[in-house]
Each structure stands twice: as structure tokens, then as C-alpha cells.
Design a protein around this nucleic acid. Structure first.
Lengths: 339, 339
DNA sequence: AACGATAACAATAACGTTAATGTAATAATA
DNA sequence: TATTATTACATTAACGTTATTGTTATCGTT
């Protein structure tokens, strides 16, 4: 037996108690203007006494919207997503929206399920950090006609709405910072190429290398899967190859930490033996000792922008495209050594 | 103008297309048994062709439940909560429930708002880590008749359902570990006393001190607010007092890291100058170098248990009380030095 | 006094679904 | 053959809300 919600107090109850019609009660509680002041007060008083709460399910059915957003991300246990999700939830709540959280584990099928769930739940809008194996899921989402905006990653081809950080610049300044510290051979442990942020950071990396007049060595660029522990495998492989490098630029802080941890376990010191630069600045909310040098994406600004944009699309039937790029900046930690 | 959800395809559309009644379509899609096999297949085929998705809003209104849980926690950007939330969302989704996320920022008023929102949204159940300044909000929640379970913290007095970790044991083994390493004066940076986990860990701390025959010094026990940066203030105060101690036991890893960071900035080394033990094992999902010695609460198990319990209450009208205590264990990092 | 305008409310229908009944045709039973 | 049971549907009502339309009574205007 499934327990039904005990529907506490309805408009009908208030109507019966006050002698007004259900409609009048409804309008009174929402302070519509063809209801007498006196009546409004009387009805509100009774509503309060009875402890009436509006049933948003019924309301949503009638009105056609739910005041709910879905937040579809890779993994909430990754601080990068956690911080953004927090800001999204906070900002959305202040605007009267609640947030349904859906993790994809960076898996395309789970992402599909998540989108389906969001559609089923009739959310008014979706903020999604797509897994981006391809555009199939976003096309499916588009076909549902629910407004959505990408955060942190973007598709090319079809230019769906997005809010991203300036990944290319991030890749560029990270690499440049290492170069300025005398590093000439920089291992780039990048995310998978089909993720836009990985592609863009790669562009930035190459740009900095080229600008400095350094030779570009493709062997120094490696992809690691997100959401798997392929970092360690990649490192095993790399260190088996006797590849020369003095610094490592990692796609994310999560990866950078794993690299650091792995090197640490092999007896290497950071930054004495290798310099490391990460990306995301996930320690912004965690006062971690021995901080990582990293690229900060302004997660709060990205999140707020994403919420504002999606609400604009929802509320204004605004057909504009939102393509926002938020800046990135270098945050110096202690993991880069001057050569 | 607010954009209405474009209600795509309804049962009515399928009914018109197939010539059956809306009810028959509804029953066919749910494979009820007084519908002919043939009819079921025909209707399903058309439903698929038209891209029908069940409108859970209408369904919820009729059925009286929403297949939705609310997760009310302090701060999703704290990895401790993030990990639990992820497991909750994952497990709930597998059981057909989606999760609404609500942060309280450890603030009683925001928590009240969050509860109100959950009630408004007609969630079927609530998993909450209460701020616990007092029981007011939980009493309010109780009055709504929505099933709920506490996670990580618990009230005394009224024994509402809860899933917690064994905080007393955690406090005990943390302290004991330090004592076994030769520490005799251990600063305990605890959470606020009104939080059950803080109280219990304190009990454990005292028990270990007493058992070891060490003198108990109340001056070594300090409270810090959660969600504020009172850690640094507390440290300023403590170090102004010339209090003697060789180790610090922190209420949480987040606090422990801040302590570590603070000490680091003053030129102290860990564990050479001070040993530190934290609580929560938030690095379980993050391969952070120089790991903290900490107490692991089994977050995954707690989360799954919480979901299972709340679903039992929801689905079985089970009137049993759920009072679950999940074990804790020591995780050795590198922040404790043998004296 | 006759008329329209306005104020304040009521009645109705609708959102899309599903449970509870109702019904017609066929099959099974006495 | 008359009666009952069964099959496969259709009809109706309901969940609680809200927009639309209706209905009075009162008021002001000419």
C-alpha cells in the first residue's frame, strides 16, 4: 500500500467555512482586484487558521508551468559541479523556482534517462552540463520544447544556448604561466576531445606554445576519461614511455589532484620534481593546505547567468540565443616551480 | 508573458487517433488486465509514434503522490553533503523517485523556507540534515504529515526517524588514536553543542580521555559555527591564550583543513608541530595529496539507508520508527605524528 | 424612471490523468 | 432457452486549482 498524501486543507474547505465560493477564495488569497478588501482579509484569516497551503500540483496542472528547473550535471560529488549547483539552487530559489538534481555520471544513457525524467516532471527549464559524446541527447531535449541552457560545455554545429567559461583563455594562461616559469615541455592531461571545454583548452595550450616559439609535441597531449579512473592508467603509460617534461597541465583540479597523489606515491615532490596546474579552482570553498595553482572559472557568475538566462527564456518567450562566455583567471598556489 | 509548457501529446490525442476512449488508452499503456492484448499493442504503437509522455503533474494530482523526495541539507558545496546527496539522488532515481535539492546554509529561517517549499511541492518524503538550533522546524515538518527522516544528525526529546553515523564511537577512536600516538593535550574544535553529532563526538572525546586516565581540561574544547568562518576567529583566540596542546581534533574535515591552512600560514608544519584528525572522510572521492587522518562515516551506506527507510515509510504506511546508526572507522592519513 | 456601468461575487469549465462504474456483446452454465 | 459470467471496452467523476463567463445588486446618469 502506497501512502497517499493527506491533502490537508483545500480551497473548498475555506469556502465552506467562510460561505464564499471556491473561486472567490482563490481570488481573495491571490488578492485579485474584484474582491472586497474586507473579504480578502476574512478569507486570509481563515486560511491561516486552517493552515492552508496552495497545492502546486493542481496549480501547475491548471497553469501549465511548475516553477521547477532541472539541473543535469556529471557528478555532484565533484566540487566543481557542487559549487555551481549550489549557486544555481540558491539563485533559482530566490526567484521562486525549485531545482531537481540529476547526475549523469558522465554517461550518455543516464543522461538520456535524466532528460526523460525532467520532461516527465514538466520542469519549466533545464540547466545541463552535457556529456557530449554526441548531440543526440540535446536534440532529443530540443524536441521536447523545454527551454534549456548548457553550462560549462557547449555543442558546436547546432548553437544551443550556453554559458561557459573562457576555456581557451584558461588553457592559454595556464600554459603561459608555466612557460613564463621556464617550463618548455608541458604534459597536457586533457579531457576527452568531444567535450568542448577540452577542445578549447587545447586550443589555448597550443596557442601559448606557439606564441612562445616552443616546438609542439603531440605526444605531450593525452586524453583521460572523466568519471573513470583512467588518470592513473594514463600516468602508468606515460611514465612507461620515458617522455620528457617538467610540468603538467591538467584538465581539471580533480585530475590534477589525482596526478599529484599518484606522483606523491611514487616518491616525487611537487613542485620540486614536477609543476602542476589545474583547472576549475575547486578549492575556492575549501581552505585546503598546499593549494594547487589553477585556473579559476567564475562558477558563481556562470551559475547565476545560467539561471537568469533560462528564466528569461521561460518567462519572456525570448527567442534570443544566449551565448555567454565568462572570464577565467590564474590562481597561484604552490605547485609551480620556477626553473 | 510566461511561456506555457507546450503540452505535447495527451491521452486524448491517442484516443482520437485510435478510436478508443481516453480511459482505455490510459489502461492500455499501463497494461491493465481488462484490455485486449491486441489493443494494448496498437495503442502503444501509436503512443510511441506520437511521442507521448505521461504528464506526471496530472497523474500526481489524481494519484495523490509525486514520486519526488526533497533533500534538505546544509550546503551542497561541502563535499560531505555532496557525496551523500549524490548517493541519495542515485538510489532514489533507481527506485523511480526524483530529488529536489534544497540548501539551508545552516540557517534556521532558510530551512523553514525549504520545508515550506517541499510541502508546497507535495513531495512524498523528505530527507533532512536539520540545522538543529531547536526542534521548531521539525515540529512544523511533522505537522505537515509528510514522512521524513533525518540524516547525519538527530533530535533527542522527540525521536523522529534518523540515520546517523556512530558519532560517539568516531569521537572516541579519533581521540584514542591521538592518545595512542602519545598526545596528552588534544584541542577539540567541535561543532555547536546543539548539533547532535557534535554532542556525541564530544561524549566520545571525553570517554577516550577518561579511559586513558588523562586529565580533562574544558578549556581544550571549543565550538565553532558551521557555515561561517568562525574557525579562524576561534584559532586567533586560542593561540592568544597560550593554551598548551599538541594535537587538534576537528569536528569535520572542512574545519580540519581550515585549521591546517591557518597553521600553515603561521609557519607551523603538520604533523611536525601539530597533529590533526578530522571527521567525515571527504577526500574519499577526491584523491587529495597529503591526506588528512580522519574518521570515515559511511556516507554511501547512510544515504542508501535513508532512502530505503523513507521509501518504506512512504510505501508501506509502516509506523515503525527508524533509528539507524551506521559505523565509523579511522582512516589514517599523514597528519598524526607519534610523539 | 429607464438605462448602462460597476462592484462583488458565483457558476462553469478546463488542465490530463485515473479509479470506479456502467454497458454491450459474447461465452459459459443450468 | 434463460440466466449468469466474462470480456473489452466506454462513461463518469474526481484530484485542486484558476481563467472565463455569468449573475445579481447597487450606483450614477440623463
Amino acid at each position: 500500500m502506497r501512502r497517499k498524501i493527506k491533502q490537508s486543507i483545500t480551497l473548498k474547505d475555506i469556502a465552506e467555512k467562510t460561505g464564499y465560493s471556491v473561486n472567490t477564495v482563490s481570488r481573495a488569497l491571490r488578492e485579485k482586484d474584484d474582491i472586497a478588501e474586507e473579504t480578502i482579509e476574512r478569507i486570509k484569516k481563515v486560511a491561516k487558521e486552517l493552515g492552508y497551503v496552495n497545492n502546486t500540483i493542481a496549480s501547475s496542472l491548471r497553469l501549465g508551468y511548475t516553477n521547477t528547473l532541472a539541473v543535469i550535471i556529471g557528478d555532484i560529488s565533484n566540487p566543481h559541479f557542487a559549487i555551481m549547483t549550489k549557486e544555481i539552487e540558491n539563485h533559482a530559489r530566490l526567484k521562486g523556482y525549485s531545482s531537481i538534481l540529476l547526475n549523469t555520471n558522465e554517461d550518455k544513457d543516464i543522461e538520456r534517462q535524466a532528460i526523460t525524467m525532467a520532461i516527465h516532471k514538466n520542469v519549466d527549464g533545464i540547466i545541463i552540463c552535457p556529456t557530449q559524446i554526441d548531440n543526440e541527447n540535446l536534440e532529443y531535449l530540443e524536441s521536447s520544447n523545454i527551454p534549456f541552457i548548457q553550462i560549462g560545455r557547449r555543442t558546436y554545429g547546432k548553437e544551443y544556448n550556453y554559458v561557459v567559461c573562457d576555456d581557451e583563455k584558461g588553457g592559454y594562461i595556464a600554459t603561459k604561466h608555466l612557460i613564463e616559469n621556464g617550463h618548455k615541455r608541458i604534459l597536457f592531461l586533457n579531457g576527452p576531445e568531444y567535450v568542448s571545454s577540452a577542445k578549447e583548452r587545447y586550443d589555448g595550450y597550443r596557442k601559448a606554445i606557439k606564441e612562445a616559439g616552443l616546438p609542439f609535441d603531440e605526444a605531450l597531449v593525452r586524453d583521460v576519461d572523466l568519471g573513470e579512473d583512467s588518470v592513473e592508467n594514463a600516468l602508468e603509460e606515460i611514465f612507461g614511455e620515458d617522455l620528457q617534461f617538467t610540468a603538467i597541465f591538467a584538465f581539471s583540479d580533480m585530475i590534477a589532484w589525482r596526478v599529484w597523489d599518484w606522483l606523491d606515491k611514487r616518491g616525487f615532490s611537487i613542485p620540486e620534481d614536477y609543476s602542476i596546474v589545474g583547472f576549475d579552482f575547486i578549492q575556492s570553498r575549501m581552505r585546503i593546505p598546499t593549494p594547487l595553482t589553477t585556473i579559476s572559472s567564475y562558477k558563481m557568475q556562470m551559475s547565476i547567468t545560467a539561471v537568469d538566462c533560462i528564466l528569461k527564456v521561460i518567462q519572456d518567450e525570448n527567442e534570443d540565443k544566449f551565448h555567454k562566455v565568462i572570464g577565467t583567471t590564474l590562481v597561484q598556489g604552490r605547485t609551480v616551480k620556477k626553473l
